[in-house]
Nucleic acid binder design. Structure first.
Lengths: 137, 137
DNA sequence: TTATAAATAACTAGATTGGTTATATTATAT
DNA sequence: ATATAATATAACCAATCTAGTTATTTATAA
């Protein structure tokens, strides 16, 4: 399952993207605006920074800003940054089909189902959500 | 994520469907043929019986048999029988969008992504897998 | 009446989730 | 300079879920 943390990360990015480009927003503001636990915002911002999407300035009048075009980041990327690789079954995590059996016809079904899901998540960008005003679920 | 138990249940049904209609197979045979822990087979058969898909006869020369047309049972049904309702995010488990916010544009994305996945799982039946000789992953 | 097989129920170790808590570091307003 | 506001980093935790195991009971064919 896509975790709540990944969902929060998407919402945090959408919140940042909803402000004028280059402007700073504090983690507390994000937490308040989107009703996300403040400590979680801090934790998630660390991962978003690591991914190269945000940068922070410390001290008074500091904050976080987006350093990429929100149209260039899609939901799959954010989810995988926070949760790690996506797999709807354990089978899909190993890159080779079942070693102990000669053939696995289930794997193809899982792969197709997952790809159908991922293509939707790849189509939608942070910009799309920021425009629609994404809120928490 | 789709659990291993759900995957096992699918494979158990495919195994049953791969035998002549009406014929009996013991849980131990299923376990051996498909390399599934014998106790888990027993546990899962209870759920498959509850769903009305199999029936068992106890004692010597007993076993399990399918009591439905394997073409009538699809993967989504089996998964939901074992794992409960499918939801790629927590959001999709509540049938109403976020009460605390007026609108949630993320929900629509999750719903579409999930539906794209489910439609693949609905297309594939136990019969399809039995014909292809589905094995464990 | 005994061996065989399903049926039922309860338990468990380990991993994951959704956080919390504590502390350190840095920039700026005064 | 220095107090303060803010990011940054790390470690911890309770609750739940997963993938099983263990133990017991019931039915039936030979």
């Amino acid at each position: 399952m896509i975790t709540k943390k990944a969902e929060y990360a998407i919402i945090i990015l959408a919140e940042l993207a909803s402000h004028p480009p280059g402007s700073m927003v504090t983690s507390k503001e994000i937490a308040r605006n989107r009703a996300i636990p403040a400590n979680l915002v801090v934790q998630l911002l660390a991962a978003l920074k690591e991914a190269g999407w945000t940068s922070g300035t410390r001290g008074p009048s500091g904050g976080i800003k987006l350093i990429i075009d929100p149209a260039e980041v899609n939901l799959r990327q954010v989810i995988e940054t926070i949760d790690g690789p996506i797999g709807i079954t354990r089978c899909l995590f190993s890159n080779t089909p079942c070693q102990n059996k000669t053939h696995c016809s289930l794997r193809g079904v899982w792969a197709k189902a997952q790809q159908n899901m991922l293509s939707v998540l790849e189509e939608v960008t942070i910009k799309d959500l920021a425009e629609k005003g994404a809120k928490d679920c």
